[in-house]
Design a protein around this nucleic acid. Sequence first.
RNA 1: GCGGGCGUGAUGGAAUGGUAGACAUACCAGACUUAAAAUCUGUUGGGGCGUAGCCCCGUGUGGGUUCGAGUCCCACCGCCCGCACCA
Length: 899
Amino acid sequence: MKAAARRFSCHKVPVMPRYTPAEIETRWQQAWEKDGVFQATRNADKPKYYVLEMFPYPSGRIHMGHVRNYTMGDVIARYKIATGHNVLHPMGWDAFGMPAENAAMAIGGHPADWTYANIAEMKKQMKPLGLSIDWSREIATCHPGYYGQQQALFLDFLKEGLVYRKNAVVNWDPVDMTVLANEQVENGCGWRSGAPVERRELTQWFFKISDHSEELLSALDSLDNWPAKVKLMQANWIGKSRGLQFAFSTIEAPEGFDRIEVYTTRPDTLLGASFVGISPDHPLAKTLERDDEAVAAFCAECRKGGTTEEAIETAEKLGYDTGIRVRHPFDTAAELPVYIANFILMDYGTGAIFGCPGHDQRDFDFATKYDLPIISTFLPSEDASPKLSEAYVPQKSEKVFYNRGFAGDQWQTGEEAVDAAIAFCEDNGIGQGVTKFRLRDWGLSRQRYWGCPIPVVHCDDCGVVPEKKENLPVELPYDVTFDTPGNPLDRHPTWRNCACPACGKDALRETDTMDTFVDSSWYYARFTAPRADTPTDLEEAAYWMNVDQYIGGIEHAILHLLYARFFARAMQITGHLPEGAAEPFDALFTQGMVTHEIYQTRDGNGRPIYHLPEEVEKLTFQDKSVYVLKSKLTEEGYFKEGQEPSFRNSIAKAYTSFPHHAVEVIPSAKMSKSKKNVVDPLHIISNYGADTARWFVLSDSPPERDVEWTASGAEASYKHLSRVWNICDRVGEMDREAAGQGDEDLLRAMHKTIHDVTMGVESFGFNAAIAKLYAFTATLQKSKAGYAAQREAIMTLAQLMSPMTPHLSEDIWAHLGGEGLIVNAPWPKADEAMLVDDTVTLPIQINGKRRAEIQVPADMPKEEVEKVALAHEAVIRTLDGASPKKVIVVPGRIVNVVA
RNA sequence: GCGGGCGUGAUGGAAUGGUAGACAUACCAGACUUAAAAUCUGUUGGGGCGUAGCCCCGUGUGGGUUCGAGUCCCACCGCCCGCACCA
C-alpha cells in the first residue's frame, strides 16, 4: 500500500472503510478456482465463444504488454460468459526457441530446466491478474505431449505432399549457427543475432505454402473482422502479379543459352525494350563468370553489395555488357544488348528482364548511364513529345495513348493494354500469360537442439523414411551439452543412431528440428482437445473452432498469421480440422503497446545513462515541473524521513527555477529493459492490486493504439476503484426504508450507462466504455436516491465493471447480497423505455451556429418544435422581423434556422 | 519510391454529418487541517466587450459539398507504420 494509507492513523480523520485489493483479489480468485467457473466443456445448449490471446514466450517475467493483451481478452471472455456463451479461454507457452539454448550456453544448465522454471515463474506472476483462463487446458510446445502430436501432423503432411525436401541456398546465420527463413532476415542480417547472413547450400525441409498462394490471398477478402492493415500486409507479402513470360533468342551466347527467358508485368511496353538485364546469379552470368575474370569480378562486386544498409541506400545501378545480343521477338532485325545488372534479383520471376527505360525509372537511370536508347511506347496525349527527361509511369488504371502499341486500342488503360498484349503474344506463340507470387515455400529446418525433432530417419538403402507413428514422440534427449557451437543432436550418437523404420537396418535420425513458427501454427486447434492422443479431436474441434476473437500484436501480422492460415488448410486436407475451419481466426484484433517516458542523464563522456521510473522524482512548482534523481535529493539532504512537507515546495521551487540536476525526459517509447522505461506489473499489483492495473491499461487510449503508462494515471485508477468501493460501503449502510429523491433520474442514467458500456465492450471501445463508467460513478456518488435505487445502481455498476475489474465487482456483489458469483450473473439489459427522456434539450442553430437551446417534450411534433424555436428570443432577435428562409428540425437532435 | 494510417486544449483522448473538447491527467482555487498528505468541491481552448450576460475565432493548411463538416470530397503540409532495386 502507498505511504498515504499508513498515515490514516491520525484520529480526527474519520477512518474510512478501505479498499484492500490484496485481500479481495485472493479471496475471489480462490472462489473462482473452487467453483471451476472457467473450465470449458462442450455444451450444445449454449452458443460457444472461443477467445484467444497470442500465447507468450516463457521469458520468465510478465510485462505490461502481456497485462494489456490478456486483459483485453479477459474483458471479452467475461463479457461473453455474462451474455450466456460457453466460453473457451485457454493459455499456453510458446516454449521452444533460441533463448533457452542461449541461456544454456551463457550460464550453463539445460534448456528444458530453464524453460520449465520460467513457465512456473511466469504462471505464478500471471495468476494474480485474475484472468478467466481454463488452466486445465494449459499446453507448452516443448512438452512431448504437444510436439509428439506435431510430429504426427508432420508425417500426415508428408504423406499428402505438403512437406518436401530440396536443396536450397539458405540464409545461414553464422552466430546462431542456424538457417533462417527469408522473413527472418532483416536488411541482410539475422533477425535475432543481427549478424550478416551468409549463403549456404543445404538440403532442407519445406512446407508447400506456395501451392496455396492464390487461396491464401483470395480468402483474405472473407476476413471481414480482420484489420484492413493486416490483410493488406499479407496481400503484399503473397505478392501476386500477372504478366508475360517469353524468351529472347540469343546471338553469340555460350552453349545451352540460345534463349533467355524473361518475365514482365508490362508486356504492353515490349516495343520500348532497349536492353536485356540478367541477375548476377543467373545461370548465364555464372557460366560467363567461369571464363571471364572481368565478369567474375563484377558479379562478386554485386553479391558483396546489398547486405549492408549503407549499400542499399547508396546502391547505384551497375551493369556489365556481356557482348551477347538478343533478337527482339517482333523485329528479328533489332538486336538488344545483354547486361548483367546488380538490381535484378534471381529470386523473382526468371532472374532476367527486358529493360524499358521509357516507362521504368530504374531502367531509365540505367539507360542514361550506359547510353542506351529510351523509347516511349505510350504518351499522356497524342501530341505529347516522346522525348523524356524521366520515365513516364502513370497508374495502370489511367487511359494513355499508345504510339508504339501492338495490341488493343490506341487509347486504353495500362491494364487493358497488358491483357491485350498477353493475348496477342499467346496467339502468336511468343509467350504465355503467367501469374507469379512473391511468396516462397516455407523452409522449416533448423540446426538447433531446442525445437521439435523432424520425425524422419535416413537409411542408406531406403533413403528418407518417415518414423512410424507408434514410435512418436521422437523425444529430445536430455543428456546434451552446449559447450561447442552447432547442434548437439549431431554429436549424440545414441540418439542419432537408430533402426530404419522400413528395413530395420542401422540408420540415422534427422537431427534438424522445426522452426518454432510451426509450434504456434496450430496451437489454437490443440487447445480444443489439449490431451487428445491425436493432434486434434474432431468433435471437439468442430464444436470450438474457429477462434471467435484472436488478440495479439501487429508484429505477427505476416508470418505467424499467414503460417497459421496455411496450417489450418493443411490440417483440413489431412483430416485434422473439420470443414469450415480453413480460416482459424474469425476476428482479429491487434492491440497497441504499453509505452513509458524515458529518463536519461549523461556520464562524463556524454554517454546516456538511463534511469528506472522509480529512481526519479517529479517536482512541480506552479506550472513548471522537473524530474530529479531521488538519489540526488537524498544526497543533498532534502529527502529525509519525517521531512517537513512544506519544505518540499521550496525544494520544488528551487529545482524548477534552476534545473541543475534535471533528468532529461525522452518522449514515450515501447517499454524496454535497455532504456529502463519499464514498469513491473508485479509492483503495480502489490501496490494497487490487479484490478487497478487492468483498469488502467484499458482506460486511457483506444486499445489498438499505444497507451502511455503514467504513475499519476495508475494512481487515479486506484483512487477511482476505492471510490466505487466506498460507494458500495455507503449504500450498504443506508436506511432501507427512508425515501430518497431522484430515483428515476438515477435509474435512467443507469440504463443509459448499460447501453453505452455494452456498445463499448462489443466494439473494442474499452476506453470510451470506461469514460461512461466514470461518469456514472460520479452521478451515483452525488445521488440522493433511496436505498433500492442506489443498490440497483451500484450492483449494475459492479456488473458493468466486472469484465475489467472482476475482483472488486465480486466483492461489491457479495457485500450487497447478490446471488451467487457476479461472474455467473447475466449481463444487465438496458430498458429501451428508460433510454428515451420525456423532455429533450434541443440546441437551436441559426445559420449553422448554436445560438440557444429549448426544452421540449420528446414526442413533440416537428411543426410544434419549429414554432417553439421560432418564438425563442435569440431567434427573433437575429431574424429581426424577417421570416426564415428554411427551418430544419431533426427530432431529438437539433433545430437549424436559416436566416 | 509504393501502400496504409493519423493530425482535436498543457497531456492521453471523446464525439451514428447535428451543442467540439466527454472521461482522465496536469495545473489553479476553495473546503477540511497547526501544517502537509488523503478526501471532497469548483475553474481551466483563445480573444473581446457595455462582464448576472453577450459577441468573435477555434479540430494541421487551403478549397469544395451541405441547412449544418473534426467527420464526406479535392489539393497541400507534417508525423507514424508497413513493404521496398518485385521486372
